[in-house]
Simulated assay, not measured.
Amino acid sequence: MEDLAYYNGKITRLSDMMVPFNDRSHFFGDGVYDASIAKNGIIFKLDDHLERFFNSMALIDIQPDFAKDDLRALLGNLCQKLDADELFVYFQVSRGTAIRNHSYPQPLKPNLAIYMTPWQGDFSGQNRLRLMTLPDQRFELCHIKTLNLLPNVLASQKATLQGLDEVVFHRNQRVTECAHSNISILTNGVFQTAPLDHWILPGIARKYLLLASQALGFGVSEQAFTIAEMLAADEIIVSSSGALCAPVSEIDGCPVGGKDDERLQQLQTKIYQDFFKETAVE
């Protein structure tokens, strides 16, 4: 298959999948999701993604009728049905199917949806991103990976219309994260990223960039930083499941970064090697 969609046991091509009208994700965005990349049928850092996925469900009172091991096995089996060597893997759960009402009946069987499409990673480390800043107007549950992404969508569209790659959110000058990524800085040999609180998502790539920095002997800091500190940093790094360690060249039209290429390359090499090692076929 070229691509794949799964919904509560049914498997089709993406363009053929139909979802019940009364799925609560339709009316309320009432659900959570997670995503990763795969190579050779092996999903990168799957245990971490499953842990975050089940934690997100618990935080909004969704009670799954499947275990982590069930979902791990299902995702692995679905990967084998695709022709592509590298895949983008997305999975979500909604609270279930019910007549539209803000409150929900209990118990309610959740709906599990998965899709997989071909993906091609850029591991050259050469592509530097162009960003813009915007006030962070999202609600204060950003640590939960929910389906409620309207502020992210609107901000991303603003960036796209200006030919930019991402948006940096800030609250009273404190940098939080990007519209669909985490953001970190390298300054004087220290890798610094925002603390885990209700304003940022606990990114899996963020976690492993911290570990990689420690392994390389860099200093590490989980302290908030301001827009001014970000703009003055030696390097600015955007990270997500699809872009593990992407450097930045421009923010709000001003050149940034490019002052510690050696450490940046060391960090990229470390995390890319981790990806290829974990997804290698023996």
Rank of each mutant, 00 (worst) to 15 (best):
L134P: 08
N148D: 13
N127T: 12
L147P: 13
C178M: 13
P107I: 00
I183Y: 04
E140C: 04
N111Q: 08
K158F: 04
Q120W: 07
I144M: 11
L147W: 11
L164F: 04
N127I: 06
K109R: 10
L147S: 12
S124Q: 11
E166Q: 05
L141N: 13
S181P: 03
L131P: 09
L141C: 12
L129S: 06
N182V: 02
A155C: 06
I183H: 03
R174G: 00
R174M: 08
P135D: 14
N127Y: 13
T133Q: 04
I183R: 01
F169L: 02
R174S: 06
D122T: 02
G121M: 10
L161H: 09
L108R: 05
L141H: 14
I183T: 02
L134M: 15
P151G: 09
V168F: 11
D165C: 00
L131G: 07
L108I: 07
P107F: 03
L129A: 11
H143Y: 15
T146H: 15
H180V: 01
F139M: 07
P118M: 10
C178G: 15
H180Q: 05
K158H: 09
L150N: 08
I114P: 13
H143L: 10
K109N: 07
Q137D: 14
R138V: 07
L108N: 08
A159Q: 03
K145I: 04
T133A: 03
V168Y: 12
P151D: 14
I183N: 03
V175M: 09
V168D: 12
L112C: 06
P135G: 07
V168Q: 08
R174D: 08
G121Q: 09
L141Y: 15
N127Q: 14
D165L: 00
Q173A: 05
I144G: 12
W119F: 15
V167H: 08
L134V: 01
F123L: 11
I144V: 15
V167M: 07
I144A: 12
F169S: 05
T176A: 05
L134R: 10
V168N: 10
N182Q: 09
L150E: 12
Q173C: 00
T176M: 02
I183D: 05
A113M: 13
P107Y: 04
Q157P: 00
H180D: 07
L134N: 06
N152C: 12
Q157R: 09
T146M: 05
T160H: 07
Q126H: 02
P151V: 02
Q126C: 03
D165Y: 01
P118G: 12
M132C: 07
E140K: 04
L112H: 09
S156T: 01
Q162W: 01
Y115A: 09
P118E: 14
L112G: 08
P107W: 02
T146I: 01
D122N: 11
R171I: 03
T160D: 06
Q137I: 14
T160N: 01
Q173Y: 08
K158Q: 14
N148L: 06
Q120D: 14
